[in-house]
Write a protein that binds this DNA or RNA. Structure first.
Lengths: 189, 189
DNA sequence: GATGCTTTTTGCCAAATGGCAAATGATTTC
DNA sequence: GAAATCATTTGCCATTTGGCAAAAAGCATC
């Protein structure tokens, strides 16, 4: 629980009693490589926090190509917010890229915490906003750069994950073929 | 104020007294074409709502090219959240693409409303989350599509704005040159 | 309706990237 | 440690897109 609490407490203060309550609702979970945290077509019912490992959020576009929307490294939340908040089916799935250790909260308990702990909503709001802004800021610039620049930006964003992510996944994140990415890598070094 | 209240009330209930308080803090503002709502290098101190017109959020990348991150049509919030929330300088600027009518709140009054109106924080949270998720969902797919697909997606997203946005701005949103976009347009019709 | 200004289209060629298939390299399994 | 499987690199050529400059079209002003 320590990494999760450390993460959360950056965004606001909680007393020991509140921390204990949150801890009591948390579930530790291990997810082996390639396993799914959530699936497309289902409603997201859990909020997760990555303690160890790398995950990715993906979908299939209308040409049937698998697209990686983003990766999630250690010390980040993993949740399909749109589905979790609204109850509509998710269009994306979340998969473990490496063996992962997670802390998860089921929706019911998550909601209880929101209703019970004064100030928790504000903290959650800040956490979520920051995470979403980060996603926009990271993905958006890729649209307007060439393939090499995209890869360099990827390296900036995920320096600790590069060696744990297969090239094909990185290519599907950058919107290029893995052949191209392989050539780009060669040219850079 | 009507469009703004209509927009807000989709996300939660407010009584008349609360609505009046919000209204009392709102400022109506007209912004002529090409004028700036907020500028890069300054701290965002206002939340806006577009009643009429189209705006765009831009920045210069490291090659000096002007990039349009997204457009904002009628009935949407316009705010540089990262700067507004954290007080750090904005890296983007917001410009009117057409003559615009806005409703704006200064940060001080906005904060007063958050502190005063029970339930307002929850509503704002929902509004912001939804807007941010929408930005991710709209921009992200562009990375992995070719130029024609990108333009088609743009048309889906901004069907009412196409004819009000210069081709060069659309191209800078899609990450292609305006020559290419011109050719794409020709091929489609 | 002529003039100047801005926006959009077009032509030409170069550069970047994709598609496909084969070759190489790495890793797991028995 | 050989075989099978999976991941990455490479070659070849087609297609897409960019860069640049000129032409055309649209629009406002006088």
């Amino acid at each position: 629980m320590k990494p999760f609490l450390h993460y959360i407490l950056q965004f606001g203060h909680l007393n020991q009693q509140q921390i204990d309550l949150i801890t009591s609702k948390a579930i530790e979970q291990e997810l082996p490589k390639d396993a799914y945290f959530s699936e497309a077509g289902k409603v997201a019912k859990q909020v997760g926090f990555v303690v160890e490992g790398v995950m990715r959020v993906c979908y299939y576009n209308n040409k049937g190509e698998e697209i990686t929307k983003y990766f999630i490294e250690e010390n980040n939340l993993v949740v399909d917010l749109e589905s979790f908040d609204t109850g509509i089916c998710s269009s994306a799935y979340v998969q473990a890229v490496t063996d992962c250790k997670l802390i998860i909260f089921n929706k019911k308990e998550w909601q209880e915490l929101l209703d019970t702990i004064v100030g928790w909503e504000t903290i959650v709001h800040k956490v979520i906003s920051k995470a979403l802004i980060q996603k926009v800021e990271r993905r958006s610039p890729l649209v307007t750069e060439d393939a090499t620049e995209r890869y360099l930006k990827f390296l900036e964003i995920y320096p600790n994950a590069v060696n744990r992510i297969p090239l094909a996944y990185i290519a599907s994140y950058l919107g290029i073929t893995q052949s191209s990415l392989s050539r780009i890598r060669k040219n850079i070094t």
